[in-house]
Nucleic acid binder design. Structure first.
Ligand code: ZN
Ligand code: ZN
Ligand code: ZN
Ligand code: ZN
Lengths: 166, 166
DNA sequence: GATCGAAATGTTATGATATAACATGACAAT
DNA sequence: ATTGTCATGTTATATCATAACATTTCGATC
């Protein structure tokens, strides 16, 4: 995957987000082409909406944006189907503790991600740390449990917000 | 906390579950007394319902059981308030990826728990592993993020179900 | 370029989860 | 008994998600 700019866990406030979006859409095109999946205009548009920022987006927010587009109608199944597709192909992740969705900035291979969620500003950073997934799989395995998918979501304060109030 | 029987991550099918429930209710009484919290009959009953087994229970299932009790009416806020109380005092945990609740078998101190969820039989085992919480806090901290609460939920196959199908 | 099957989207309805807002009741301290 | 606090009851609604079926799109094949 081509990466136009160096990414940081929590992006700076003034960063070039148009570039984040462009990278994500490019990566999505590539990934879908590689996998023989069809990134239709609707799916592409939903991905773009999810990439509105670095905070998770809820399904009905996506729905509202689609409706603002005016073009076609839009109903919940439209949104959920597009999000399912995007998740299936690793382009977005679902944040279980927020019932919301966030774009993946490295949709390279199958991964469930680990998320740092700032309770103050709402920004989310994705990790994909092998040591974390390793220790989880190992501890589970020690109890005879086979880990297939890990949901890891940490809630707390991001560097910016921590600075603001100690 | 008094522990009547040695617990295992995934309890045996034929174990004495009445003992699990009794221990949990005892521990809850003790913990609430210690903290000056009121474990009212309603809250106690909800806790008992959540402890129906070792699989998570959904809020509206709790509601249905309460209604079967007949006594008072019951509406969603009744259930959610009781569950909030129980969570606040560490007696139950919420499983975010299932929108469901499970009793805690070691409500000793504040902890968010780590959960192994069997996709086949639905049983859930709780871990409270310091190495896991340690590596999560450390990795987060390395990025300047302060972890306040970790949601860790692994989906996969428990020992019983793994045995059944390889 | 017609036909066809599969995939995608549209459409309607409903199910499932959760909370807001306000009224009433229980209870202990004064 | 009065008062304040906490708990619960009650009504309504917000929010999240899917079932079921109709229609459209689109590429593959003839
Ligand atoms: Zn950005
Ligand atoms: Zn990712
Ligand atoms: Zn048991
Ligand atoms: Zn616990």
């Amino acid at each position: 995957m081509k990466q136009r700019t160096k990414r940081r866990a929590f992006p700076r406030e003034g960063h070039d987000h148009a570039d984040c979006v462009a990278s994500a859409l490019d990566a999505a095109e590539t990934r879908c082409a590689d996998r023989g999946a069809r990134l239709t205009p609707l799916r592409r548009r939903v991905l773009e909406i999810v990439w509105r920022g670095h905070a998770p987006v809820r399904a009905y927010e996506v729905l509202d944006r689609l409706r603002e587009d005016g073009a076609g109608a839009a109903a919940p199944p439209t949104v959920y189907r597009a999000l399912d597709f995007l998740m299936e192909h690793g382009l977005v992740h679902r944040i279980e503790s927020l019932n919301a969705f966030i774009g993946c900035d490295h949709p390279d291979e199958a991964h469930s991600g680990q998320f740092l969620i700032c309770r103050d500003c709402g920004l989310v950073a994705e990790l994909d740390d092998a040591e974390i997934s390793g220790v989880l799989a190992r501890k589970a395995r020690a109890l005879g449990f086979v880990d297939e998918r890990a949901t890891v979501e940490l809630r707390g304060l991001c560097p910016e917000c921590r600075g603001g109030r100690g």
